[in-house]
Amino acid sequence: MIASVMFVCVHNAGRSQMAAGYLSHLAGDRIEVRSSGTAPADSVNTAVVEAMAEEGIDISKNTPKVLTNQDVKDSDYVITMGCGDACPFYPGKVYLDWQLQDPAGQGVDFVRPIRNEIRALVEALISRIDAKEK
């Protein structure tokens, strides 16, 4: 059975988009990837798109989506990033809260360290999922 991960932040325009982009890129189709926001923005942050393009990951066509209860129900791992108590809780899910700076309104120089931190967290998450799935 394939593991599934839901990344949630407020606007689904920065942190969760970067995390989903990395997970899709690094894990391929081994892990199902979702991302959404509690109050989605109209579009993905342009500095975030630029920072991910530097890594060879194109998220320019992504669109922020609203978080639904079904998204959480369908996920094995729910990774929150600054959305507080707005994320629904269901027993049996693995919940992780990643404390990351918000890239909203910031330039690419501010976004790069956040991007790098997210990559390290995603790599650790992949290792955790791989260890559990064996």
Rank of each mutant, 00 (worst) to 15 (best):
25 H>W: 13
37 G>R: 01
48 V>M: 08
31 I>Y: 00
132 K>P: 01
71 D>C: 05
117 E>D: 14
71 D>A: 08
96 L>Q: 15
57 I>K: 01
50 E>L: 13
21 G>C: 08
125 L>N: 00
130 D>Q: 12
52 M>I: 09
107 G>K: 05
47 A>F: 01
97 D>W: 08
116 N>H: 10
44 V>C: 04
128 R>S: 13
93 K>E: 08
122 V>W: 00
106 Q>S: 12
17 Q>H: 12
123 E>V: 09
43 S>H: 14
87 C>P: 07
105 G>P: 07
107 G>H: 09
20 A>H: 02
119 R>W: 04
114 I>N: 00
87 C>T: 15
52 M>E: 04
68 T>Q: 08
133 E>M: 11
69 N>E: 14
107 G>A: 08
69 N>D: 13
106 Q>A: 10
10 V>D: 00
99 Q>N: 15
112 R>K: 15
34 R>S: 08
6 M>R: 05
115 R>L: 05
121 L>W: 04
50 E>W: 06
100 L>R: 03
86 A>T: 11
23 L>I: 01
64 P>S: 01
82 G>K: 03
32 E>A: 14
6 M>L: 15
107 G>R: 03
42 D>W: 08
102 D>S: 09
58 D>R: 12
11 H>Q: 13
36 S>A: 15
98 W>P: 06
30 R>P: 06
21 G>M: 06
54 E>S: 11
113 P>M: 06
13 A>N: 06
86 A>Q: 15
110 F>Y: 07
113 P>H: 02
120 A>R: 14
57 I>T: 05
88 P>R: 04
89 F>L: 10
67 L>P: 00
69 N>K: 12
90 Y>F: 14
87 C>I: 11
98 W>K: 07
80 T>D: 09
97 D>N: 15
5 V>C: 03
48 V>S: 07
9 C>L: 12
54 E>Y: 05
102 D>P: 06
61 K>P: 04
132 K>Q: 14
74 D>Q: 12
81 M>F: 09
23 L>W: 01
